[in-house]
């Protein structure tokens, strides 16, 4: 019997299938709400698990497009899902920083793992994955290369953390002034980190701090965020799947009242 969690995000779709507390299949598709991405993620996760749709006992949808996923038995907000998913990945976690494609959230967990407080960014792309995408576009470098470029920087160039549109023209000005690309990229990472750090401080930062969502893969942002917050940040290679994992856990708990540990297969 499988329990499915599907996270329909603004730019990606993720699916995790649980069986007896173990991840039986997972998939991530770089297509979000309003595309065939959710269906593909679901099908690919089923294929990875060698299962059929009728093997799924309960499906919980989360993410920005959770209401659009017709196959859901239940929906939960992405904050609840990331809180659940990260607590299972990091049992000591008290603060979860989730930087997604179009927003950023900070979740405070109590000692028992329950969500105690949370904050979301306002309607602005600054401090989100979208900010990095726009900047990567301006620099004409693949977004996956930002981390390696930031690591080559000698000195991060100052980039505004206030507004994506203003920051874009600042990046162009920096390039026009001859600032090396790695320094500009490092400045971009610092900009995202400074915005998210301010959000995290509003929620209250308690260790252990973990990072979730697609931007967690970017070491440049992670390290800048560690410096801004003054605490180490843990992350998982599965960070982008944490929301879908949390949704799958919710499906499992709702169906069977389980509280067991989840293992990635």
């Amino acid at each position: 019997m499988l329990f499915a969690g599907i996270d329909v995000g603004s730019t990606t779709s993720k699916c995790v299938l649980l069986s007896d507390g173990e991840v039986a299949g997972a998939a991530l598709v770089d297509m979000g709400i309003g595309t065939a991405g959710p269906e593909r993620a679901y099908s690919e996760a089923l294929a990875a698990a060698g299962a059929a749709p009728e093997d799924v006992a309960c499906c919980v949808a989360t993410g920005y497009g959770r209401a659009s996923w017709k196959g859901a038995d239940l929906t939960i907000s992405e904050l609840t899902a990331h809180g659940l998913g990260n607590r299972f990945l990091f049992p000591e976690a008290r603060t979860v920083i989730d930087i997604g494609g179009q927003d950023a959230k900070v979740i405070e967990l109590d000692a028992g793992g329950r969500m105690a407080n949370f904050v979301m960014n306002d309607k602005c792309a600054a401090g989100t994955g979208r900010f990095l995408e726009v900047m990567a576009g301006v620099l004409r470098v693949p977004i996956g290369e930002l981390e390696a470029l930031a690591a080559q920087a000698e000195k991060a160039a100052p980039i505004s953390s206030t507004c994506t549109v203003f920051a874009e023209s600042e990046v162009i000005s920096q390039l026009a002034a001859g600032t090396p690309v790695p320094d500009v990229v490092a400045g971009i990472c610092v900009s995202v980190a400074s915005r998210v750090a301010a959000l995290a401080k509003r929620a209250g930062v308690k260790e252990q701090v973990c990072m979730s969502g697609g931007v967690a893969r970017n070491g440049g942002v992670r390290r800048a965020l560690e410096r801004a917050l003054g605490v180490p940040i843990v992350w998982s290679a599965q960070a982008q799947l944490a929301g879908a994992l949390g949704a799958a856990l919710h499906a499992w708990h709702k169906s069977e009242g389980q509280r067991g540990e989840v293992k990635y297969g």
Partner: peptide, 23 residues
């Protein structure tokens, strides 16, 4: 929840209130 007279999309408010309900 930040509101104004020009709001047409309430998805962020929904996510926030849904999470608050969970809390």
């Amino acid at each position: 929840v930040e509101i104004d007279r020009q709001m047409v999309n309430f998805e962020q408010a929904r996510t926030l209130l849904e999470t608050f309900r969970d809390v």
